[in-house]
Amino acid sequence: METALSVLVGCLFTVSLYLLLSKHIIRMLLGVVLLSNAVNILIFTAGRIVSVAPPFIPQDAETVSDVANPLPQALVLTAIVISFSFFAFLLVLAYRAYQDLGTDDTDEMRVAEPENDGLPPLGY
């Protein structure tokens, strides 16, 4: 299972990095979503697939053993929610940038770092 998941993680990273490298904001956004999935599965798999039994303690027991590793699950659970809120933020940012700059090409978004910016003042 770990091998299959490693291959899956490789695919997810490849696609998300490819999308992030393109100059269109929409594609970069899709890449961000895939990137968060890739990272989540990476963390999940790094905690090993020791069992597919959910990590719950049965009603009549005090402890449990031989269940899925609960720690990566807890880490990934919060990561999912946070990456969602960041995705929403980036989406709105891209949307606003498109509204105000009229382009989705990152090469043309030069408000913060304008092209042909002259020398800084050389006096004191």
Binding site: E2, L5, S6, V7, V9, G10, C11, L12, F13, T14, V15, S16, L17, Y18, L21, A38, L42, T45, A46
Partner: peptide, 12 residues
């Protein structure tokens, strides 16, 4: 991107 993806896959 493929290099990065392979890197992560091997790493995992």
């Amino acid at each position: 991107a493929l290099a990065g993806g392979i890197g992560f896959g091997l790493f995992l």
